[in-house]
Amino acid sequence: MKTEIAGILEKHEGDRGGLISILEDVQARYSYLPAEALKFVADGTGRSLVDIYGVATFYKSFSLKPRGKHLCSVCVGTACHVRGAPVIAGEFERQLDASVGATTEDNEFTLETVNCLGACALGPIVVVDGHYFSNVNSSQVKRIIKKTHVGLDEAEIKADRRLYLHTVSCSRCNHSLMDPDHKIDGSPSVRVTASFERKHGWLRLSSLYGSFAVESEYPIRSDEIVDFFCPHCHTDLKGASACPLCNAPMVAMLVRAGGIVQICSRRGCKGHMLDLDGAGV
């Protein structure tokens, strides 16, 4: 833990309002603020532990207790309140058998209320792991919990009408990158050469827009930034933009039907952009 905290502190060196951002990063890493971590933060920043504890307990979004795998926030802003948010919060308490602010016994869910998420027209609003549910009524609560257990990001490859195939080619030599012999998600995959840590090998991506399935010759650690090359002309596929989510370089490919698709070169990041008129930034 000590080295990880040191890494976070280093990232925020010279940062304005450092402490709050540091604690936010610590919480993002451990899902709460472990006592030991606060001690490391105190040591590293030279501030007293009391100071750190004060900040950690003053702000609502920090938790000193471990939190569940899923964070479920029920908005209780005024607009949601007049539309029946207290009933929704009560129903979550009943269904999860945990009161507001608590975590379920199986450590799956933490239930919270928040003061206004600013989507007042759609109230009552519930946010689970960043997914918004609008106009929630008490009979939907059970379904939301069930959906979360299954996984909110899961897309059913066969049934989901929002997924579609796109054919891509190298932005330099215009050679197709499609590999019909190696299928991912039941469709031809996109093949590129990936290079990281002095290893070179193939990397295949799903060609379904909306699927994030990837296979590679060598296992790639999560968070690793990978260089992508065209397997035909060996050009670096790096595009002009940075990933909107994590700031890593984006990889650009031409879409057969028109436009440019850019994906983040960081393993595990879902940042992507599809520009139909190729306008870029």
């Binding site: 989507a119 929002r162 139909l276």
Partner: peptide, 24 residues
């Protein structure tokens, strides 16, 4: 609000349609 009420799905479908029909 838009995303919470399904705008992302509309965007996806629009992109698909524009690509499929060569309207980009």
């Amino acid at each position: 609000c838009g995303q919470a009420s399904g705008a992302n799905d509309l965007i996806r479908v629009t992109k698909r349609e524009l690509l499929d029909r060569g309207l980009t």
